[in-house]
Every structure is written in C-alpha cells, then in structure tokens.
Amino acid sequence: MYCFARRTHTYLDLDSGRDFDSKIVVKVNAPALLRKELASSRWAGDHIAMGTNTDPYQRAEGRYRLMPEIIAALRDRANPFSILTKGTLILRDLELITEAAQRAPVSIATSIGSVDETLWRAVEPGTPSPLRRLDVVRRFADAGIGVSVLMAPILPGLSDSPEQIDATVAAIAGAGVVSLTPIVLHLRSGAREWYRQWLSARRPDLLPLYERLYRNGAYTPKSYQREVLQRVEAAKRRHGLARRPANVRLPQDDSPQTGTEHDQQHQLALL
C-alpha cells in the first residue's frame, strides 16, 4: 500500500500503482552473476544488503528459488550480508543462512509496524501476518541468529496510539528480538498518491490529519515524530528492550536522507 519502492517501477515504464501490485520483474540469472562477481579479483568482500528496495522473499521466490543459490554463493565466499524481509519464506533458508553466519557476519531484519490483525489486512494485503513474522524472529533466535525489527511504518491515526504501540512492542519483545527501530510513515511520490486513494476510500475521516502532517513533504513534523518515538521508548522500557540497541533518528521534514548507511538501508524498506 505505502511501499517506498513503488516509484522504482516507473524506471521500467510501469506505473507505481496497479503495475506495482501485479507485475514483478525476476532476474533469473542473478545467482550466476553473483558468483561471477564474487570470484572477480576486483571484489573486496564488501557487505551486501538484500531487501533494501524490494523484498527478496516475495511470493515469486517460492517459484524461482533464487535466494538459496544466492546465499550459498555468499556462504562459499564467506561474504558478509544482510537480509531485510517481510516474508516468512526466509525460514526455508534458515539452515543455509546459519551456515553462512558461521563464516561471515550475517544479519536479518523484518518489519512489523503493528500487531493489529484488522489493520494488517487493510493496509498490507498479500503479506504474511505480523504474528507469522514474529515466528520468524523466534525461529532465528532459536538458531542463534538475532533478528532486528523495524517497527515500520507507524501509521498516523491508525497505529500510533499509546495502547497500539505498547501492544506491538510487547509482542516484538516477547519474540526475542535483538533490536527494535521505530520509523514513522514517510510518503514520497508514487506511494503518496496511492496511499491517499486508499485513505479516501477506507478512512476519509483521516484525510485532514494527513493533509496537516504531510503538508510540507514526505515526512511528518519533527514534533509529531518525537511524540511517537517517545511512546515507543517508554514501551521498550516497560517490556525490557530499553537496553537493547536501536537506531532512532528524526529526518528533516522533506530533506535528503542523512545518517549512517545502515540507517539508510533500513529506511528504504518501507516496505
């Protein structure tokens, strides 16, 4: 619904609305190309981040099975990597990822903006439920690989109340997460128009709120972000996450991204 990657479909002469929802481009030779690049004398073994624009564990991955070969190539080269996904299909590759983690740094992250099942069905159709994503956190934790969770996006008027935030943080903490990073919804061109259409059809009462919060661009005002993030931090303290690491920052209202490369990769996931 609000995916940050919507606009990238326009680079392929597809639109960011229905084409994004219904058409996917699959690079079936990706594993072979990766092995070729990794074998090059020019390759310095840099960290490879997967899932920073589109999810590598979308439904099509069940058919094309590209990720096992990609992970195996990285494992064989002992190359560090990270995966950011909403998909539970990553559990299929748990053994491979565990093997890779024994040879090089590996990190896994998923996004869980809310554990409200009704809200999930409305705004994230076609994705695994939050409860299933929590199971991914548990399964990797049991295997000795910690998972970071992006509490993202936090939706104004839909998932930002103290009660909703507390319930979400409690569930994430209970799953054994190693870190939790809250991110308030940002709406750039492509996602902005599509999301507004959804609000108009499903929650027109929230249109004035969104017009006010996003009147200056893609980001909500810093005052609103601070209020929401303070609620998250308070919930983290209540549920034993206060001492676990997190990357929290407030972007400018509509300025270019700043901060570490790790933060920027995670921001791209809004998934």
Rank of each mutant, 00 (worst) to 15 (best):
residue 68 P to F: 02
residue 102 Q to N: 13
residue 106 V to P: 02
residue 156 P to V: 11
residue 251 P to F: 03
residue 189 S to C: 01
residue 204 P to Y: 09
residue 40 S to Q: 03
residue 15 D to C: 12
residue 157 G to Y: 08
residue 129 S to Q: 12
residue 96 L to Y: 05
residue 242 A to R: 08
residue 176 G to I: 08
residue 178 V to I: 15
residue 26 V to G: 05
residue 96 L to H: 07
residue 193 E to G: 07
residue 24 I to H: 12
residue 146 G to D: 06
residue 196 R to G: 06
residue 49 A to F: 03
residue 75 R to K: 14
residue 122 A to Y: 01
residue 100 A to D: 02
residue 104 A to W: 04
residue 57 Y to P: 00
residue 36 K to R: 14
residue 19 D to C: 09
residue 67 M to K: 01
residue 40 S to T: 02
residue 29 N to L: 10
residue 19 D to T: 08
residue 128 P to L: 09
residue 141 A to G: 15
residue 216 N to L: 13
residue 142 D to C: 01
residue 242 A to H: 11
residue 58 Q to R: 08
residue 96 L to M: 11
residue 141 A to P: 00
residue 39 A to M: 04
residue 227 E to F: 08
residue 71 I to G: 01
residue 206 L to I: 10
residue 174 G to D: 13
residue 82 S to G: 11
residue 16 S to Y: 15
residue 243 R to M: 07
residue 148 S to W: 12
residue 191 A to C: 10
residue 251 P to R: 02
residue 79 N to Y: 01
residue 198 W to F: 13
residue 224 Y to M: 03
residue 144 G to H: 07
residue 21 D to C: 11
residue 5 A to L: 11
residue 221 P to L: 07
residue 118 T to P: 00
residue 219 Y to S: 11
residue 182 P to F: 06
residue 223 S to V: 13
residue 240 G to K: 04
residue 94 L to A: 13
residue 209 L to T: 12
residue 236 K to Y: 01
residue 200 S to A: 15
residue 126 G to Q: 11
residue 28 V to S: 13
residue 61 E to Y: 04
residue 15 D to N: 15
